[in-house]
Design a binder for these strands. Structure first.
Lengths: 137, 137
DNA sequence: ATTTAATACTACCTTGGAGTAGTAATTAAA
DNA sequence: TTTAATTACTACTCCAAGGTAGTATTAAAT
């Protein structure tokens, strides 16, 4: 029960970029070293983030990445969605296909309560809120 | 963000066995068919459950499995522990090694709140409570 | 022009979870 | 004593996540 590394990395990458918004471009090398993420794996993620439009890339010497969207408009939930890592709403925690409000599995109601709280947390955690306040990244 | 199939299957297997406690033995075939779990994968899990002492097996014709422990004394949490599927208490949700109360990651406090609720739910959900009440299994 | 530092692309390797196949061992029934 | 029905064991396959390697492309600095 945990997030994928790709999601965890992405959250930290975007938060780092927002924390250094003053600088026009940030390189993969800097991100890799400061966030302790394997360089090659990181660049793979970055290319994906470029493709979905979260960031922009400038190639060539002195190149790097730039955060494109508003930090207050991207949430942890969005990132989890992107990497298919979110908690699916229909999905029964015990994997029972036909589990629904009429014929519930034993954990149904309790799980919904936890699930709603988790989803709320993910949805309300913007990159902006994660970046600021001297939080560890 | 979900449980492993092995954990899901095990919860349902044990609940089914408790629901049929009147019968002395239950076969892998019956479990596989009624719970819609791949036969070979199920027997692999059963052997594991025998090894950790949750159930007992009788080999040979007319053989099968028997629930050994008290249904009120095995929890979903125990099962998640068994398959290394539980939420680890020390583990930062963003995967930051040095995340602790003194130097927190941005999700730290919110995550703890959700985590505690989840752990409580898993710890309080005994096989007995899952089995009864006409719940879907 | 050449070099250098950067991103992008293609192809691979590794690991663990999930699942399958075949056979051995066991034991009651026939 | 043979057969049938069961669990146990060994050894695989398949797939996706995580990660690595090498090369191509780009563009500023020299």
């Amino acid at each position: 029960m945990q997030l994928s590394n790709t999601s965890k990395y992405t959250i930290r990458i975007l938060a780092y970029m927002v924390n250094h918004k003053d600088r026009s471009l940030i390189s993969a090398k800097e991100l890799s070293e400061n966030l302790d993420i394997p360089y090659k794996f990181l660049t793979k993620i970055m290319t994906e983030l470029v493709k979905v439009g979260f960031i922009e890339s400038i190639r060539g010497r002195e190149g790097g990445y730039k955060f494109l969207r508003k930090a207050s408009e991207i949430t942890v939930g969005d990132i989890l969605e992107l990497f298919n890592d979110a908690i699916k709403n229909e999905e029964c925690i015990l994997g029972i296909d036909s589990c629904d409000p009429k014929q519930k599995c034993a954990l149904h109601d309790k799980w919904i309560k936890s699930k709603v709280q988790l989803q709320k947390m993910f949805r309300e955690s913007t990159i902006e809120s994660i970046a600021g306040e001297g939080n560890k990244i």
